[in-house]
Design a protein around this nucleic acid. Structure first.
Lengths: 219, 219
DNA sequence: TGGTTGGAAATTGTATACAAATAGAATTCA
DNA sequence: TGAATTCTATTTGTATACAATTTCCAACCA
């Protein structure tokens, strides 16, 4: 199998939770699976580490990033800073095409809300976050956010299909859109930050009731 | 030479600008210099890439991160988000020992100001930024900031020994300290953000008058 | 002249063998 | 028994040879 395909496949395996946090990646096994030697496998693992999906430990190899409750807090708090800034910049730098796109997303969110379609809501949420980040026109900010987004993906499946969370998110998204359309920098930043704080809160309350600390380590 | 030492040496070479942005690292040369084979050299280069010092291009290898004016803007804007959040969190989570340390730093900054000692001022600035980041108690935020700080280091030497910038920085640092000591979250965040905006402004005005665009690429 | 092509040199990419370190199981000894 | 120890198997770390790609320069031709 070709190198880029192997990278993409491993990425998907992680996102789809066929490889889960705390799981060690055995180089020999990957070689046999993908029919390439250890050298390119290691390059791929380093790339995935750079993406935020894996951790590397000397003399122990690569492991899917271990996420405890504490770290989920931290990731969302960092995203709050980054995406808050993005929302602010989107007010300043976003052009009319961007705002037109936002108005379209707004309509679709409202429609999905009425039809109680959580799948559509999730996709629209991603679209909105991406549109705002793009409009901010800051490559470093985008790269930084990508890493955090990838880390969030490690817990993505557990956040899916929770109607209460999705409804709250949709409403927050509408508030963000309105603020950006008004080009109210402070409000846009504030709305985005509140949205991420709230989402984090919801995840924690729902999936880690009372729990605090590390995560399983299968080696 | 041992692997960790090679990593540290290369890191220092970059920080001290013996290796400059845009410079390609030739694996064979590094092998001869450090007397280890290409395999560990590549691992080290991947690690430095993760630190934000290098970029990797397929079939072309590793290059010291290329920084144009645009990217310097972007880095400081991202730091504004990250360190602003850190200042806010330091107000909430910082303990009395932390604030005591801040009062010490405040005294030293005032002293360095009176004595017009820019070297001491720079060291104190770093100490302050680090103390605030530590007090924020957010590992992901700290890691994210580390990458950005490393990128900033690539341009660090050109920001040194500029009395005007250092004086403005010192005053901004005092304002930040006061806000954190008052535990005024909003003010602390705002002061930190203004400080980074101002510093970026100074760098641009002083070292890139009128210039805009990419940087040299020696290959 | 100036652009294109061809080929040689330099450089990165891959496979593989062996060394070193780690982890796990069996053994020993109190 | 159970804690410590030794040994074995597993896994990562390193060196090296060769393949593929890129780069650079010289030869060529319109």
């Amino acid at each position: 199998m070709e190198k880029n395909s192997v990278y993409e496949d491993l990425r998907q395996q992680i996102i789809q939770e066929k490889l889960i946090p705390g799981q060690w990646l055995i180089e020999r096994e990957l070689c046999e699976t993908y029919r390439i030697s250890r050298t390119p496998i290691r390059e791929i693992l380093w790339k995935l580490t750079g993406d935020g999906f894996l951790e590397q430990e000397a003399n122990r190899g690569f492991v899917v990033r271990r996420l405890g409750l504490e770290q989920i807090f931290e990731i969302f708090q960092t995203r709050e800073a980054i995406e808050g800034m993005a929302a602010k910049l989107a007010c300043i730098r976003g052009n009319e095409a961007f705002r037109s796109n936002l108005r379209e997303i707004k309509k679709k969110i409202t429609k999905a809300n009425i039809q109680s379609d959580p799948t559509a809501g999730i996709a629209l949420g991603r679209e909105l976050h991406r549109a705002i980040m793009d409009a901010a026109q800051n490559g470093i900010l985008t790269d930084t956010n990508k890493r955090l987004e990838n880390m969030t993906l490690l817990t993505a499946n557990i956040t899916k299909h929770s109607p209460a969370i999705e409804k709250a998110s949709a409403e927050a998204h509408l508030r963000i859109i309105n603020a950006v359309l008004e080009q109210d920098q402070e409000k846009a930043e504030q709305m985005m930050r509140e949205h991420l704080r709230e989402t984090c809160q919801h995840i924690v309350e729902r999936f880690y009731p009372g729990m605090l600390g590390g995560v399983s380590n299968n080696k």
